[in-house]
């Protein structure tokens, strides 16, 4: 059994990485592997925006991902600096529920907890 860390670096609206990461995570958990954390960096932090407005017939993958991580007690972290630079969060703009502000330092330290890092 392996322990995984998952890293997202591209925009979750413009790409299929949120869907892919959930498929991967589900499959890994079903096989008895563990997932230590999911870290959003670079353009992936756009998924943290709480005020996105999606039509009802488009999947809200960012919310699904938060629910999924909560269900399975996976730390769902994002780089606060990357998010602030993009205007995704600020003092008056909280992060989407379920996403936890963290830093690169925390991501770096968590690397010792895992066997494999998979990037989406």
């Amino acid at each position: 059994m392996a322990r995984f860390g998952l890293l997202l670096t591209c925009n979750g609206f413009a790409n299929q990485n949120l869907a892919s990461v959930m498929l991967f995570a589900r499959a890994a958990l079903n096989k008895g592997h563990e997932i230590d954390h999911l870290f959003l960096y670079q353009d992936a932090v756009y998924s943290v925006a709480a005020h996105t407005d999606l039509p009802a017939d488009e999947p809200d993958l960012a919310s699904e991902l938060a629910q999924f991580c909560q269900q399975h007690a996976i730390a769902l972290l994002f780089c606060i600096t990357a998010a602030e630079k993009r205007g995704v969060v600020s003092d008056i703009r909280p992060a989407r529920a379920g996403y936890i502000a963290a830093g690169l330092a925390e991501f770096a330290m968590r690397q010792v907890n895992i066997d494999k890092l998979v990037q989406f």
Partner: peptide, 11 residues
């Protein structure tokens, strides 16, 4: 005090 930009929060 040294007139530099604020260092990144996350490091």
């Amino acid at each position: 005090i040294a007139g530099l930009p604020k260092p990144a929060k996350c490091l």
